[in-house]
């Protein structure tokens, strides 16, 4: 049995008498320490899937198993890095992380230890210099770093990334991807990431799960990315296997499962 298992999940949203089937029979397995990406066109329901894993949304059928136990409600064992960072604007960078640390380690760590652990996680994302700043005083990329530090500080069993770099410019995104790769290399976290960026998926993942277009999105294909780690962005650009994996994803997304809008335009 795998570490994290999304088991035959269906999701139907009901609005009044109208029902929309978003996800149909989704099964995804993630091994401990693996980095798995879920890729698909926007609107295919991949964020809904992540919310189901996080426990923020309930599946209509099926369920999520973590270490063979069903998880139904949200909790710090599945920490989420939200797309729009979701830092609390009235708290400093330090206090945003400290809030999580205080809550998760209230019983296990003393005051001093919690302080040190907060700083340690800020250091991990290279944000210790901004610890006394408020979220609106730092850049988008920095906010996302703090969001990642907050999630890591909970020592989650699974780290859930919901299009974490989607709102960032290309350079900042590359920096953050490198940081996430380095952290994954050091800490060996189990990560489930939602993305719509083909390069990002190939670069970061051990496995990419491709979703078909909604409504009633299903798992279309699963691609194992067998490239050795650590991976370096520059070397990979000309790597034949990288190009091959990239090709496979592009093929799936743009040749076989184009967005309905694109098809209609032809």
């Amino acid at each position: 049995m795998s570490y994290l298992r999304i088991d035959h999940v269906d999701k139907t949203f009901a609005r009044g008498s109208q029902e929309t089937e978003v996800l149909r029979d989704i099964t995804v397995e993630v091994e401990k320490g693996q980095f798995v990406s879920i890729i698909g066109h926007s609107g295919c329901g991949k964020s809904t899937l992540l919310n189901i894993v996080a426990g923020l949304t309930q599946p209509s059928r099926g369920g999520v198993l973590l270490e063979n136990r069903e998880v139904n409600d949200p909790g710090p064992d599945r920490a989420v890095v939200f797309q729009n960072h979701s830092l609390l604007p009235w708290l400093t960078v330090y206090d945003n992380i400290r809030l999580a640390v205080d809550k998760v380690f209230a019983a296990k760590k003393g005051r001093r230890e919690r302080h040190d652990w907060t700083l340690e996680n800020l250091d991990l994302v290279q944000m210790a210099h901004a610890k006394d700043k408020r979220p609106h005083e730092i850049s988008g990329g920095m906010k996302q770093r703090v969001g990642i530090a907050r999630a890591l500080a909970m020592q989650p069993k699974v780290l859930l990334l919901d299009e974490p770099f989607g709102a960032l410019d290309a350079l900042t995104r590359a920096h953050l991807q490198d940081s996430v790769m380095a952290i994954h290399q050091t800490l060996g976290n189990t990560v489930l990431m939602i993305t719509h960026d083909v390069d990002e998926a190939v670069l970061l993942s051990d496995r990419v799960v491709m979703m078909t277009n909604g409504p009633a999105a299903r798992v279309g294909e699963v691609l194992e990315i067998g490239m050795a780690r650590p991976r370096r962005r520059l070397e990979l650009a000309a790597d034949p296997s990288y190009i091959k994996y990239r090709q496979r994803l592009l093929e799936f997304l743009y040749a076989r499962h184009r967005t309905p809008q694109l098809q209609a335009a032809e």
Partner: peptide, 23 residues
């Protein structure tokens, strides 16, 4: 978003009130 953060952290009602709702 703030409600989601509170849910992931499992803040109880009193903590949610003082740390999220009022600010």
């Amino acid at each position: 978003d703030y409600r989601n953060v509170a849910a992931v952290l499992r803040l109880n009602a009193a903590e949610f009130f003082s740390k999220i709702m009022i600010p």
